[in-house]
């Protein structure tokens, strides 16, 4: 059992990558990797698009709207996918909650 509080990402959440967490291309496997101290995650193309959009200014709701227009997909589905992904990042301490 962990005493670490579970962060809840909502539509109004504004997040960014914390200091020390960076997106880098792995030249060996030619895919993008999110690097953090003592941890790394290989990301697929959509995960990379999401991470690159985390500017610490736009909310999840705004990002969902932008992606909905860009990918011609339902905003609700996109918001759900983004929140699930960001929750995974947060659980691994790879996300900073701005508000």
């Amino acid at each position: 059992m962990s005493d670490q509080p579970q962060v809840v990402i909502t539509d109004s959440s504004v997040v960014k990558l914390p200091r020390g967490v960076r997106l880098r291309r792995d030249p060996v496997r030619n895919h993008m990797v999110l690097l953090a101290p003592e941890r790394a995650m290989a990301l697929d193309d959509i995960a990379v698009v999401i991470v690159q959009a985390l500017d610490g200014v736009k909310s999840v709701d705004v990002l969902s709207q932008e992606f909905s227009e860009k990918f011609h997909a339902p905003k609700d589905q996109i918001a759900q996918d983004i929140k699930a992904f960001l929750t995974e990042l947060s659980n691994r301490r790879m996300l900073e909650i701005v508000q």
Binding site: L43, I46, A47, V49, F71, A73, I82, F85, R92
Partner: peptide, 13 residues
Amino acid sequence: MAWHAPKFIEVSC
């Protein structure tokens, strides 16, 4: 590129 749920693999040592 079509929208899909983002996927990732945690790369362990």
